[in-house]
Amino acid sequence: MTLNCAVLDDHQDVALSMADWSSLGGSVEVRSVQEHFGSEEEVAAAVGDCEILVVMRERTPFPASLLDRLPRLRLLITSGMRNASIDLEAAARNGVTVCGTASNSEPPAELTWALILGLARHVVAESGALRDGGPWQSTVGADLHGRTLALLGLGRIGAKVAAVGRAFGMDVMAWSRNLTEERAAEHGVRRAGSLGELLEAGDFVSVHLQLGERTRGLIGAGELKRMRRTAYLVNTSRAAIVDQEALVAALREGWIAGAGADVFEEEPLPAGHPLRTAPNFLGLPHLGYVTRRNYEGYFGEAVEDIAAYLAGSPVRTLAVPS
């Protein structure tokens, strides 16, 4: 019997070219889905015939209500080894095995610097003016050397961002609830005593925390107002860590100099979302992990996950939290 497999949210239509799906032989028929489904009804209608689904991070959530509508589903593969939008208990209850893949931390760290540099040197505005015949040199850039890079989180990605900041000659400091003096010192970083201290000191504040109950809405209006009016905020982690309404207000009212983000609470970002027209905002369509090396790893290991499952020995399974 041939099993049906769909790769969801393959916006660039590259999933089938990034791995050798033919190695699965005739046992699996794979199709790529480029459009994003906005409702559970749309997902169920489009892929209800599938025994296998491959999903990109948290683009399409899989709560219990959706899993209950997919009785044929037996294997759900996510890029990365964490996906907060999959209800693992519901998956287990429905007999669905959930597997993951490796994920490199370098690409999101690199994109963080694309946003920081783009904001600091007004790259988009100056490039647009050059293309459109606008004014020659209309902005004055912000320096990195000698300025303070303030990191919320010093995990795998935050540590890589810190190393680049040090190479630029920046004073790097970090804070998170669990950050120790020893880890900060290990990465040549000063440990801030509190979130407020970090925000008040940072010229560039970059978010690298995991989203959870303690970090959801961590940066609200009060926190944004504690930042310097000349400071920039960058978020390549999870949108919900920063209150989106407060961020729009901060940009429109000049609480901060600008902001960059690669993550949004609703993706794709709706056409009329206020961030699309907010002043001094540099936004990208969640490209942090989108590189050839990452995609070849994701889809290559997805093929391995499928083969292992069909052989009766699933690998890289995501366990139900204890």
Rank of each mutant, 00 (worst) to 15 (best):
L24M: 07
I157R: 11
A249H: 03
L66G: 05
E51W: 05
R276Y: 01
S79N: 09
M56V: 10
R147M: 02
G153V: 08
G146C: 11
A257E: 04
L318C: 07
G95Q: 10
V30D: 02
D20P: 08
D132M: 07
T60P: 02
Y298S: 00
L8M: 15
A311L: 02
L24S: 09
S176Y: 11
M170G: 04
A257L: 11
L251V: 05
R216S: 10
L275D: 05
R226I: 00
Q12C: 01
L154D: 07
L310M: 11
A114K: 05
A92S: 15
W113V: 06
A174T: 05
V161R: 14
F62E: 09
D68R: 12
E197P: 04
L8Q: 03
D203G: 04
W113I: 08
E265D: 13
G169I: 08
R292C: 06
V320S: 04
D262N: 09
A15M: 10
P268Y: 03
G217E: 07
R228G: 03
E42N: 01
D49T: 05
L152A: 14
D87I: 02
T215C: 06
V172S: 03
V242K: 12
K225F: 00
D132W: 04
R252P: 02
G217R: 14
T60Q: 12
Q244E: 15
G217F: 05
L275G: 09
P274W: 13
L199Y: 10
G100D: 11
R190K: 10
A163N: 03
A91P: 10
H286A: 09
G202P: 09
R214C: 00
D68H: 06
I116P: 05
Q137K: 12
L233Y: 00
R131L: 12
R121K: 15
R121C: 05
L75N: 06
R72M: 00
E126T: 12
H187F: 14
A15Q: 13
G202I: 09
G25L: 12
A19G: 06
E245I: 00
T97G: 11
T97P: 12
L149K: 09
W136Y: 13
V14G: 03
A159S: 15
S105A: 08
A250I: 13
A45E: 15
R31A: 02
S206C: 11
N280C: 07
D20R: 13
P270F: 12
D10N: 07
V172N: 05
R69P: 00
G193D: 14
Q210E: 01
L151D: 11
L287P: 00
F281P: 04
R177Q: 15
E301I: 06
Q244D: 11
V30H: 03
L195D: 06
D9S: 15
E35I: 01
G254H: 08
D143K: 01
R59K: 13
G220T: 06
L8V: 05
L218E: 04
G95W: 13
L154N: 13
M1L: 12
H286R: 05
H36A: 08
A319P: 02
E110Y: 02
V28A: 15
Y295R: 14
E110S: 04
V290M: 11
L67E: 00
G193K: 13
L144Y: 01
R74P: 06
G141T: 02
L8E: 00
A185N: 05
L149C: 06
R72V: 00
